[in-house]
């Protein structure tokens, strides 16, 4: 589903007006389309996408290759690594470390997003006094 995760930037002509709705979810009137066109916001979405899409593809591939090895490749799965500890068990165990390492990378990189978000939010709030 990786292609569905990319917002179709610029591909559609968006009516340039506010969605004038105020209810319990839509508390403030903001020019959402203008923020969306903001260069820093676009940079934020782009850097996030450049991390999330490859990371998602990687972990799904790593996981499904594991399922296929376990289900369909008994010779590989049963090969011994240390004594009676086989590839199937170590490959399963490696999924845990894969998840922890990917999360570590994500959190480390997310610090950059947070700083970018703070800058954009400060600008939006500053230019749009409530």
């Amino acid at each position: 589903m990786a292609d569905a995760t990319s917002p179709q930037d610029g591909g559609k002509s968006i009516p340039a007006r506010n969605t004038e709705v105020v209810d319990d979810q839509h508390t403030a009137l903001r020019d959402w389309q203008a923020i969306e066109r903001d260069s820093e916001f676009r940079e934020l979405v782009r850097t996030k996408r450049n991390l999330i899409i490859p990371a998602t593809i990687f972990f799904l591939l790593y996981y499904f290759v594991f399922l296929i090895v376990v289900g369909y490749m008994p010779d590989v799965a049963n090969a011994s690594v240390f004594g009676n500890i086989n590839v199937a068990y170590l490959f399963a165990l490696s999924q845990f470390f894969m998840a922890w390492i990917l999360m570590g990378i994500y959190v480390w990189r997310a610090g950059t997003f947070d700083r970018l978000v703070e800058r954009i939010v400060a600008r939006v709030r500053g230019g749009n006094k409530e």
């Binding site: 968006i14 969605t19 508390t27 903001r30 959402w32 969306e36 916001f41 934020l44 979405v45």
Partner: peptide, 29 residues
């Protein structure tokens, strides 16, 4: 989800996507 979305039109959903996108990424409001 994909096929039905492609054959139907939903102006309101397309319009409010900007708000979803901005709020999901910025946490504003």
């Amino acid at each position: 989800a994909i096929v039905v979305s492609l054959v139907t039109r939903d102006e309101a959903a397309v319009e409010t996507f900007s708000e979803t996108n901005v709020r999901a990424n910025l946490g504003i409001d």
